[in-house]
Amino acid sequence: MDIVKRNNVKVFGEGSQPMIFAHGFGCGQHMWRYIWPAFEKEYKIILFDYVGSGNSDVTAYNSERYSSLNGYAQDVLDICHQLDLKNSVFVGHSVSGMVGLLASIKEPEFFESLVLVGPSARYIDDKQYTGGFQQTDIEELLLTMESNYIGWANFLAPAIMKNDERPELGAELTESFCSTDPVIARQFAKVTFLSDNRKDLDKVKHPALILQCSQDIIAPVQVGQFLHRHMATSVYRLMQATGHCPHLSAPEETIKLIKEFLT
């Protein structure tokens, strides 16, 4: 199995310490395009798409494996094995926060620290716990996604992006943008929004940065605070950025906070 091809892995940068960027539910590695340029001088940048997302090899999709976040964590571990990575900085957006957390518990020596951008341990409310959603919200989301499959071609349309400063990445950036297969996207949504990783938080041994956005509907402030309370090794930063994608809407602030954490 060619992992590099399977996960559309890109390796570049002038540093030796690996910095792995893992995208969340919805899109692919393009999401990080405003962030990695700030780190490529000092780190070895690793970009990839989970199987079933972006430009990964969709034929490698196994619905049993990817019906659990552990299957996605295995993607990360496979890449670490393949590239023989040690002491990596793992930067995960949204659900990738928990994916990276699981991977770091399974094979600690691959990682040095974790940067969790808008993470959540569980999206659905539960007794004393506020996740932000009810089961019915998630079911409605699946319907919304389904309704958009009619116009799904929008998400497959070439993403036209200016990329004059990095011509070697230009070709890649004009390929498809989002989750390519409706069935896979639906399963990823289910796995993401029905996951519950609260029990795994206290197993984390690595330093972790929690980047919490203001007014994030997907991962509300209470969730970020919950994570911080249950992860002894964590640092909590409340961002000025709003929404769920600070790496797109507020790249400067995101970069600044990651740099502060890493030095």
Partner: peptide, 23 residues
Amino acid sequence: LSSRIFYQTHFFPLLKLNEQVSE
């Protein structure tokens, strides 16, 4: 609520990177 998730995970990233979305 569910449309907000879709907005954050699909609509906004697409709009931001592609500068337009349709249908």
